[in-house]
């Protein structure tokens, strides 16, 4: 475990129990409850590798890919869910799929993710890096829900993407995907 020698901010939550220190990309150090910290499978894995006896020392887990501003958001999410989520038995694969794809996004999470899409993507990337599957999944679903309501043009506009297809390319790709458009090309009647 590497140690962040200095940090611009050190936040202490004066609660009993094991505390885990992590540092963000900018070197800011956060001290988390063990339960909260272990919602990240990456942190959990590191702690398990190190052995919990080392968890209470001054070592700081460096989260080098997570910016402070995004980590703070994730911290909000982690703390809320650490306090509200019930312990669940591992689900069967099919149940997992159903849960992932069929369940609505809870209201609190909807509010949490009611931010600019760029921020959602950054949270998503950080959640992926930290291996917080539930948060990553919520972000993915949120982005997908947004995409569902947008046309191709609107998506370009939303993301500031230029249509760089040549007319020929556009026509070609349209042909390739025409079969599933809302109004597919009609074939002959002798079908």
């Amino acid at each position: 475990m590497s140690t962040a020698a200095s940090s611009s901010t050190s936040e202490t939550i004066a609660e009993p129990g094991l505390k885990i220190k992590v540092s963000t990309k900018e070197g800011e150090v956060f001290e988390l409850d063990e339960k909260v910290a272990k919602m990240s499978q990456v942190i959990r894995g590191i702690l398990e590798d190190l052995g919990e006896q080392n968890g209470g020392d001054d070592s700081v887990l460096p989260l080098t890919q997570v910016e402070t501003r995004i980590f703070r958001k994730i911290l909000v999410w982690l703390k809320y869910h650490a306090g509200h989520d019930k312990e669940e038995a591992p689900k069967a694969e099919e149940d997992e799929i159903i849960a992932r794809f069929c369940e609505e996004i809870p209201e609190w999470d909807q509010k949490f993710l009611n931010v600019d899409q760029a921020v959602i993507l950054e949270i998503m990337l950080a959640a992926d890096y930290l291996d917080i599957k539930k948060l990553r999944g919520l972000c993915c679903k949120t982005v997908a829900n947004i995409l569902k309501t947008k046309t191709v043009e609107q998506i370009r506009e939303m993301y500031g993407i230029e249509n760089d297809f040549t007319p020929e390319e556009e026509e070609e790709i349209r042909k390739q995907t025409a079969w599933c458009e809302d109004e597919p090309p009609r074939q002959g009647s002798n079908h």
Binding site: R136, G137, I161, E170, R174, C180
Partner: peptide, 23 residues
Amino acid sequence: ILVEILQHLDIVKQLALQRVSSQ
């Protein structure tokens, strides 16, 4: 991540996304 997003979308939308840009 991309795949997980796509898996929330039906095939019609997935294919529509291909028309966003060459990238």
